[in-house]
Nucleic acid binder design. Sequence first.
DNA 1: ATGGTAGTGGGACTA
Length: 267
Amino acid sequence: MVLSLTTWNINSVRLRMPIVERFVGTYRPDILCLQEIKCQNHEFPLEAMQALGYPHIILHGQKGYHGVAIASKIPLTEDHRRDFCGVGDSRHISAIFERGGRRIRLHNFYVPAGGDEPDRTINPKFGHKLDFVEEMKALSAAAEPDTSAILVGDLNIAPLENDVWSHKQLLKIVSHTPVETEGLTEVIRRGGWVDLMRELVDPSQKLYTWWSYRAKDWDAADRGRRLDHIWSSPDLRPVLQRIDILREARGWDKPSDHVPVTAYFDL
DNA sequence: ATGGTAGTGGGACTA
């Protein structure tokens, strides 16, 4: 059996339902993790998602901003939502599913973008992002006994040199500053996570999941960043089959600035 | 160095 799991920052799920349907119509992942749904729970297009084949849906929405959701063909249990930094933002949702005799804890994150100025003394949004990452360092891939773990989401940090189009030009740009990239690397190290995308694509190769709306021609300029991530506990590494970054979705009608990233596991 | 685009909600903020 193959388990497929997609993470996608959808930048308003209500506006984006046509491309959600287009994506699901072709790729039909077993589990779809969305970020930036930008709606309250009661505004989520629940019936439309169920009609696409996802009877199990858990939500952590918020009016206007942020918001995360998991839509699944597999039952989800023990779900919870954590308020990182205690500011009332909806940036995390988590649940357990069972597959191939395993219990798997799935975390779906939307890490703060952090504003433009990479200095917490003049930009509180950057301070909030650093505090959020600091709090993530306590999140262990082995937190629950007899339970594997997967962590996905828009982490808004491109940790490696080839996770951005120009390492040198982005060193002072929020998402690729040393304090952020070192922070995220420490989240991985302390939590015992495996960066699955970089297990399959050598760090010498460029890898992007996001292209700015502001570029004149995003495709030709190709000034992308790898802001979206799929991590797991080490025990799932041997069953990882492949990961697809659907770059073409950035060119669809009314696109998100992020594209869907799908992992396939032998499970 | 700047401004470029998109979403929510009908301002100003966030990304």
